[in-house]
Design a protein around this nucleic acid. Structure first.
Lengths: 304, 304
DNA sequence: ATGAATTATTTAGACTAGCTACATGGACGT
DNA sequence: ACGTCCATGTAGCTAGTCTAAATAATTCAT
């Protein structure tokens, strides 16, 4: 059985339509259709089924597509192996990130990459996007997951943890808690809060604080934009949860960050990839640079 | 990179010459040579090297060939998967065995196989043959290994244990030890032995008995042929080591078998295969039949 | 030492498989 | 009902892979 045909079936499983596969593989839909037809004839069983004007995979088709992934992985491993022999981590790697992670990691990463390795970046709104679906378009998808929530591990995707993204409590200079080394939920009772909009991931942490402290937090404002929130905190209008590594780096000393203990506030940045793409040497190199950069970011903040 | 080309490289690693690969893959040597040349050009590094009038693989070539095996395995898994979907365990399976194992297992196995699955058997002298090399020619190679001796596990071959082949002590009817349930090495001191020719695997067991009993065994005769040995034992001219399941089945009651305790006399019949071929549904089916038959042989002897 | 045999490679030419371009046929939305 | 979107069918072209025959390099035997 031809590997190329299996690959087309896998793409079909990922993208859902023949035209999408054709577009992705630089072919005409006719070519794709023909090859899938040949594959079906060779397999001797129905792999696709018409559904409306599109088509869906049968059970057999899905199963075959899954095993096609294994083939793609071992093939990618083979090519990676000989790239290693040639010491040749070159090629194009495409990456998509949500803005804060990109701001934190990407500039440093791109500087670290040797010549011949081109990293092509884009950003997506984390609220609107379906991260797993993006792996069809991009080699690496930077996503965040509340630690423990590995919802997309089962989808057959490779997920590599890159760094923890702790949330701190942001205080104005001169706040009574500002000389503490860290704060607990019970310390925060009675404070005025600058909160985030409904549905944002921070909210879950705020609820956890309420639960732990056994009191209701008074929420003065609700903003979506982080810089806005910080400006309110700096102005002394309340305190807020802020990500440790992406808080206003420009104006140091005007915002005091305190680690929060007693609540699981660790969110995680992970790289999400198709298993086969994760094997490419160029991709693995970028991944290594991402980890290194993540370490450096963490280090530079703990030292300070 | 094309899988077919990788496959050719793997065949070259297994068979050692381009003409052999060409013969095995039903191509002309020219075609093979061309494809390998293309592969080398794509890889960008030397994979083969001339050595005399033939050629040998470079380190890179060997490494690539190894990873080509992984590709072949996942591909075989894919085709096996859809054979399972169609419930279609058909095709040709070739098998080579040493005579005693074949006599013991094959007739029953072939009867058990459904229509469409053709099992093609051959036999080889176990003393003369290089079992691992035979996996290039045959899908399944039945070999025996002293238990614990997994010399060919590292070679990248799949090895499936099928059954234990215990050695018993063969006694003539009416022998003093004939009413025992089992015998120990110390019981055997002073007996006259009918031994095997030098270099046969039984010899190692005989040495172990000597070691354990702390005495020298007097070896009256040395024969290679098992039937000959047995006829001597039956005639009361000595005792001998005989394989439990393949001793003269024709004349029951004329030879008494006693299990030997205190010495590791367990030899094992294993199936040796290339990893990719081991995945084929037809091959796995044959393997299952072999195990079933092995169980049945063991059972029929313990009951009796 | 020379000729015969074995092994890999080159070249040229034939064949085949897969692609594009265009046309056809259902299914959905307005 | 019409236009649109998607999959598929058909015809022809292209590119890649095979065979066949010739060449080159090395070993073996007499």
């Amino acid at each position: 059985m031809d590997v190329q045909r299996l690959e087309l079936l896998r793409e079909l499983a990922d993208r859902g339509s023949i035209t999408a596969v054709a577009l992705a593989t630089h072919r005409t839909p006719s070519a794709v259709s023909q090859q899938l037809k040949v594959l079906e004839r060779e397999a001797g069983l129905q792999l696709t089924q018409r559904h409306g004007r599109g088509l869906v995979l049968t059970d057999a088709g899905r199963a075959l597509a899954r095993s096609a992934t294994d083939v793609a992985v071992s093939l990618a491993k083979a090519t990676a192996l000989w790239d290693e022999f040639r010491n040749n981590a070159t090629g194009d790697v495409s990456l998509v990130t949500f803005p804060t992670a990109g701001q934190m990691l990407l500039p440093g990463v791109i500087k670290d990459l040797g010549p011949g390795l081109v990293l092509n970046c884009a950003d997506e709104d984390p609220e609107l996007s379906d991260f797993p679906a993006l792996t069809a378009e991009y080699d690496i998808v930077l996503a965040h997951s509340i630690s423990g929530q590995l919802s997309w591990a089962g989808r057959g995707l490779t997920v590599v943890p890159l760094m923890n993204k702790p949330l701190d409590v942001g205080l104005p200079v001169g706040h009574p808690l500002a000389d503490r080394a860290w704060v607990r939920p019970s310390d925060l009772i009675g404070e005025t809060w600058i909160g985030v909009s409904d549905g944002y991931p921070f909210e879950r942490i705020l609820h956890a604080i309420e639960q732990e402290a056994g009191a209701h937090l008074s929420m003065a404002q609700r903003f979506a934009d982080l810089a806005l929130i910080e400006s309110f905190v700096i102005a002394g209008l309340g305190i807020a949860l802020v990500p440790r590594y992406t808080s206003s780096g420009g104006q140091p000393g005007r915002l005091v960050l305190k680690p929060l203990r007693g609540v699981e506030s660790q969110r995680q940045i992970v790289a999400l990839m198709r298993p086969d793409r994760a094997e490419r040497l160029a991709v693995r190199t970028v991944l290594g640079a991402l980890r290194a950069q993540a370490l450096q970011v963490q280090h530079s903040h703990t030292v300070k």
